[in-house]
Amino acid sequence: MFSKTLQKDNYGYLFIAPFFIIFLVFGLYPILYSFYLSFTDWDGFTTPASVGLENYLRLFGDFFFWKTLFNTLAIWIVSVIPQLTVSLVLAVVLHEKFVKGKSIFRAVFFFPNIVTAASLGLLVALIFSWQAGSFNQFLMGLGIINDPVHWTDKPYFMRGLVSSILFWQYFGYSMIIYIAGLQGISRDLLEAAEIDGASKVRVFFSITLPLLKPIILFQVVTSIIGGMQIFDQPYTLTNGSGQPDNATLTSVMYLYDTAFTRYQYGYGSAIAFGLFIVIVIFSILSFTMMNMRTKNEQN
């Protein structure tokens, strides 16, 4: 009997085998090969020539890499802070009983999240273009400006525009996740606090927010991993250029450009791993910051 179950249990290997074979070929191998390439110089045709740490030293001194990293971080922070706060407020508001048309609001706020990012990028590029852009037309129609403004020439504005697209796309998604979290908090608890005389604001900060902490942490970490890889929106917004003044050139755009339009696969791989290290550092930082806060509160 015992040996029979043991035999059956070994069937498990057969069930997990296809996944692992595909993962080894298309998941793990590419990462390990990229890691190997990051220590070589390779144009895609000849055999990769080992160059030791040269790519990483070049990366460290590459002003352009640091600039793209700065751009990525700036775009991410400007989008993620309003994204995580506005969505939290919206979730709490849409959880209230008095609000009418909850499901419609939920659907409308969430909708941009499932629209192709590339389409959104081009759409915004069209709306904010110079001569025929509807944004300029709109402002001129209202008499706010007399001549069309060259928005696409303004580095800060364009970087902000990328952040805005990201916000537009993700605040509804964050809101849905917060609402799912709120539904896990018993209404009785919140109502009891209100009956005891606590104001809505007080209930929010003393009960709702601490209970949502795991969900907030989940959102922060996933948004770091996603945010450091921003590519689709700035790429289509600027037709792949990262202009003006390279202000919208993100690290993954630089990686793509280096490897796939200038065929420096070795250095491109080094950029990928440099970026990975940054993601790991930020993830660890946000974990420890959240944990420190919890400890302080317990003391």
């Binding site: 070994n10 498990g12 191998y29 991993i225 890889q229 990928a272 970026l275």
Partner: peptide, 28 residues
């Protein structure tokens, strides 16, 4: 199926979720 290494391998699968996609772009 309670085969040997079940837990370790499952944790390994979970860990891969945290790896950013662009890392293997050139290798892919």
């Amino acid at each position: 199926y309670k085969f040997r290494g079940n837990k370790v391998l499952f944790w390994f699968v979970l860990a891969t979720m945290m790896v950013p996609q662009q890392l293997g772009l050139v290798g892919t």
